[in-house]
Design a protein around this nucleic acid. Structure first.
Lengths: 109, 109
DNA sequence: CGGCATCCTTTATGATACTG
DNA sequence: CAGTATCATAAAGGATGCCG
């Protein structure tokens, strides 16, 4: 016979949770994803939209998000160089839920 | 005239985002919230459901979540002592979105 | 039982200078 | 322009012992 808790709420999956947290946790990561949304932005545009972020951290976060498959990086062989970032399909699929986190934040007002 | 981006996706609110992240980020915080769900659990039960968490971290996370207003702590003046934790109304309101984060994690499989 | 205090290790974040 | 390298600080997490 199942317990009351099993019926009402199956035990959360720690692995799924950690994958979601890897995508959004950190001082800038979720904000970068939401900011990007459906647009394509260049490295410099992102740095202007994230005032106060250091070069090292921005480059590191972008690299990590690309590695996670959340966003895509496209470099053009031009001079001066141009690099564009946009969400991957995976990132776009996650977007609705991630945007809802702002409503969760709203609960604290 | 609004820009294309303004129409499609208003700039995310960093303050709301940070409030949501404060609630869920960290190695255990989101898992504690989802695990609690609609139940009431004692301190020792929580520690058994979070294998590997240290006393310091568990006590600190519970205290932080109570301070954030996400959960409630109820201590009984018995011997031996008994302390119960459950989600506050705020925590229960956030629960549906937080559970959806597992589906976001599912995207990485 | 349900913590807190202390000390320690690991990650995360940041400032800055430099380069293909 | 779009980063990397190096150095430094801060925050998170953990091990362990003690206490009301």
């Amino acid at each position: 016979m199942p317990t009351n808790r099993d019926e009402q709420a199956p035990k959360p999956d720690l692995r799924l949770i950690n994958q979601a947290l890897a995508m959004i946790c950190g001082k800038w990561r979720l904000y970068i994803i939401l900011l990007l949304g459906e647009q394509t932005l260049r490295y410099t545009q992102l740095s202007e939209l994230l005032p106060g972020i250091s070069e090292k951290v921005l480059a590191g976060e972008l690299k990590a998000l690309v590695a996670l498959g959340v966003m895509k990086r496209k470099a053009y062989a031009e001079m001066p160089p141009r690099v564009e970032y946009k969400l991957s399909k995976k990132g776009r699929l996650a977007l609705p839920v991630l945007n809802q986190l702002q409503e969760v934040g709203q609960l604290f007002n």
